Amino acid sequence: MTASEYIAQIRGEYPGTPKPIAFRSAIAELATITGGPSSLYNILRDLKENPHHYDGVLRLIAQTIRKGPVTHAGSINAPIFTYHPGNSETFGWGGVPTDIWLDICRFEHWIEDSIIVRWARLTDEINRTANPGRYLALLMASPQDERDTSEVRQVLSNSHNLQCV
C-alpha cells in the first residue's frame, strides 16, 4: 500500500476509486506520519511515548478487521472468531479459538510463507500483470531503515548488574 506505484488490493480498485480497500488511507497516513513505509520501529517507539497519537488510524484498522474477517470467518451459526468490545481506552479484543491459536503458533512459519505467496498471486490476478514474482519481491522486502538498538544494548549492559534470587 505504500509502494511507489498503485497496487490494487481488491477487485475493481484503481487510483481514485470511490471504494478503495478500507484502510488504504490509514496505511498511507501512518507512512506519512512516520516518514515512510519501512518505519515500523518509529511507530512502535512513538506509540510508547504518545499512545493516543495514532488512535484514529488504529481505530479504523481495528474496525475494518472486526467488520471483515472477525465477523465473516466461519458461518452465521458457527463463527470462528469473537469480538469483545473494549472501553473508551481500548479498541476491543478479537478472540481466537484455542485449537486454531495453537495451530497458528505451531505452524506459523509455514502459514506466513503460504499467506505471502497466495497474497502475491491474488495481487497479480487483481492487477492483471501476469507476474506474481514482482509482488512476491515487494511483500518479502525487508525494511531498509536501521533499527535503533541502543535501548536493548542499555538493558543488556544493565543486566550484568542484576542478580537472580
Rank of each mutant, 00 (worst) to 15 (best):
T2M: 04
A3E: 10
S4Q: 12
E5Q: 10
E5M: 03
A8G: 08
Q9F: 03
R11F: 04
R11A: 12
Y14S: 02
T17D: 15
T17M: 04
P18F: 00
K19H: 12
K19C: 00
P20Y: 00
I21N: 09
F23V: 07
F23T: 04
F23P: 02
S25I: 04
A26G: 03
I27N: 05
I27V: 13
E29F: 01
E29G: 07
A31P: 02
A31K: 01
A31W: 04
T32W: 02
T32G: 08
I33A: 06
T34E: 14
G35S: 10
G36M: 03
P37A: 14
P37M: 11
S38Y: 11
S38G: 15
S39Q: 14
L40T: 11
L40F: 06
L40V: 10
L40R: 04
L40S: 12
I43R: 11
R45E: 08
R45V: 03
K48G: 08
K48D: 03
E49Q: 10
P51I: 07
P51N: 09
Y54I: 03
Y54P: 02
L58G: 01
R59F: 03
Q63S: 10
Q63R: 13
T64A: 13
K67C: 00
V70K: 03
V70N: 05
T71N: 15
T71M: 12
A73P: 04
I76W: 06
Y83M: 03
Y83T: 06
H84V: 12
P85C: 00
P85H: 02
E89Q: 10
G92A: 02
W93C: 07
W93T: 14
V96Q: 02
V96W: 01
D99K: 13
L102A: 09
D103N: 14
D103L: 10
C105Q: 13
F107C: 13
E108G: 00
E108T: 07
H109S: 15
H109E: 14
W110E: 14
I111Y: 03
I111N: 08
E112I: 06
E112R: 12
E112Y: 01
I115P: 05
I115D: 05
R118C: 09
W119S: 14
W119D: 08
W119T: 13
W119H: 10
A120S: 07
T123R: 11
T123G: 08
D124M: 06
N127P: 05
R128N: 14
A130I: 00
N131P: 02
G133A: 14
R134S: 11
Y135W: 08
L136S: 05
A137H: 13
A137F: 07
L138D: 07
L139W: 01
M140T: 15
A141R: 13
S142D: 07
P143I: 01
Q144F: 01
Q144S: 04
D145W: 01
S150Q: 13
V152L: 15
V152M: 13
Q154M: 06
Q154N: 12
V155I: 08
L156S: 06
S157W: 03
N158V: 04
S159R: 14
H160V: 08
H160N: 12
H160T: 10
N161D: 15
N161V: 04
Q163K: 15
V165L: 11
